[in-house]
């Protein structure tokens, strides 16, 4: 865990995102009806979900580790990862809503993708509420770790699997082609993939900052 105190990967993430900001607005994109220039949202909307996915995965990993070892620090990592992940969840939802307004016509058109994303959001809100409702530390850690392990696959099913099985406006769902079909010329990939790496790094960075604060608070409370 030494790397959370190092700064090379933080600088890397910042530089990469600055690159995607510049390249994302200037590089070539396919000209498509309805989407027009909004296709560039792909570089900023999808990485939010990528960041959320990575940070929630880390959270589950440490929840499992907590249940196996009972070390309090692992529980703290799991919570702060969820706290950060929820923020990126909101970013993903809101950017998706804005994009939907200008391509699907409504901010919220009760699309399966939108609805199940909202349910998954409540799922993680429930995790945070559950944590705050239990006073005893070990019980809290154990119960919330178990909840977290169950919430993660349900979130995956809700956001990434169920919308695929029904009719959805969202690309890649319900028979709609994903954007992978459009950027076959790979010119979009040179921006999209760096963004996929950099935004999760930013999320991890924020989570580690929160975790370090939590460690200090925890130390003070136990003294």
């Amino acid at each position: 865990m030494k790397f959370i105190y190092q700064s090379w990967w933080k600088v890397l993430a910042v530089v990469t995102i600055i690159y995607t900001l510049v390249a994302g607005l200037t590089f070539h994109v396919p000209t498509l009806p309805i989407l027009h220039e909004t296709i560039r949202n792909l570089y900023f909307h999808v990485p939010m979900w990528m960041a959320m996915l990575v940070i929630f995965s880390i959270s589950v990993w440490y929840s499992i580790k907590y249940l196996r070892t009972g070390q309090e620090a692992y529980d703290l990592i799991a919570v702060e990862c969820v706290n950060t992940g929820v923020v990126f969840f909101i970013f993903g939802l809101v950017t998706g809503m804005i994009w939907a307004k200008y391509t699907w016509g409504e901010y919220w058109s009760n699309d399966p993708k939108q609805n199940s994303a909202a349910i998954a959001f409540l799922l993680y809100c429930a995790y945070l509420v559950l944590r705050n409702s239990i006073d005893e530390e070990q019980r809290r850690a154990k119960i919330s770790a178990v909840y977290n392990i169950f919430a993660f696959p349900i979130m995956i099913v809700l956001i990434f699997i169920l919308p695929r099985l029904t009719d959805s406006l969202h690309p890649g769902n319900g028979g709609n082609p994903a954007f992978g079909k459009y950027d076959l010329d790979s010119r979009m990939r040179v921006v999209l993939y760096p963004a996929f790496i950099a935004w999760p790094l930013i999320a991890v960075w924020i989570a580690t900052l929160r975790y370090r604060i939590r460690l200090i608070e925890n130390k003070r409370n136990t003294l």
Partner: peptide
């Protein structure tokens, strides 16, 4: 682009200062 990049650099510097204080 300049506007977005400036906003992002500002936020990044902010994160770095939080890191340093911590």
């Amino acid at each position: 682009i300049a506007t977005i990049v400036i906003v992002f650099i500002g936020l990044a510097i902010y994160l770095f200062t939080i890191d340093r204080r911590l």
